[in-house]
Amino acid sequence: MASESGATAVVLDPKSDMQSSVPKLGANSSLSEEGLELNDGTGEGEESVQPNVDQGVAVPAGPARPADDEILLQENSIKAEEAGKMEFIGDKEPLSALAAEYERGNEVFKAKIQKLGETYGSIRRTRGDGNCFFRGFMFAYLERLLHSQDKTELPRMRDRIERCKQELIAIGYTPFTFEDFLEIFMDQLESVLPEEGQPISLSELEVRCRDPNVSNWAVMFFRFVTSAEVQRRAEFFEPFILGLTNLDVKKFCQTSVEPMGEESDHVHITALTDALGIPVRIVYLDRSGGASDDALEINHHDFVPESAPESFKPDTSGLLTLLYRPGHYDILYSL
């Protein structure tokens, strides 16, 4: 995987997701006992299964399974409820806001947050809808460029995206399925690094990154890039994917990368950071270690692609940093 810092790499557990609140229908979820008995009665009788539309008697209605519409409606209402609680990207808050969450909580967390305060000053929360890594990554990246105004980044990223595009076509994606998503992301990049005129303001960037018509499209762009990179280097990623799931590389991309709301773990992060050449530091806030331990360490893992430009690398102020708590990513800011 990406090169490691001195700190211990923590293997993320993609299944420990506290945020995937959308219920998934498992096998047999709607098979009631009653339904099974009904089958016993009708399964044997040949006549009863002969087609007979007019009389309608031979068309047994199985036990009602929720229709697609109903399931979607339920999912949407959960999403709407979630949206009411939290923007895709929150305001920048002092780290004490994080400490407040754990006031009555676990001692290890409290001790770690205090320790975190030695290095980091602020946090920006993201909505826990399974897309938080991508949303956090995008905002952190664009915000960084808005401040640095590093004009070399625009041509570099254009070149990267062109390569991703060719890769997607080579794998067999039809251009129209990804081009719109890519354009929306490029629009944002060009707005923070305009070739002429003034860049957008930070508050405008916040507005855009809270707009589903921008944020969701950009998330989908990242999902395409991630999927293309995983498939391009299938041999490299295969053992890691097998360690997480029992899916092959293609199926993993179809089920765990490309659908919206599927969470990111180290496979996604490695693929995205490598494909775009942007390093990211993930700081882990978990229960490991004891509260009284004087040498309490906060683990982090640096994903540093070889091709990364110097300005984004660790030990520079340009390093993008996300805070990971099991199942969720927020943005962290250095003091």
């Binding site: 229908l25 199985g62 399974r65 399925t177 999902r223 659908p259 919206m260």
Partner: peptide, 19 residues
């Protein structure tokens, strides 16, 4: 569904992707 044609397929629900 033999009664109303409703389909049970993951990609038409939670496994759908804009891709």
């Amino acid at each position: 569904s033999s009664a109303n044609g409703a389909i049970c397929l993951d990609i038409l629900k939670d496994q759908w992707s804009p891709a």
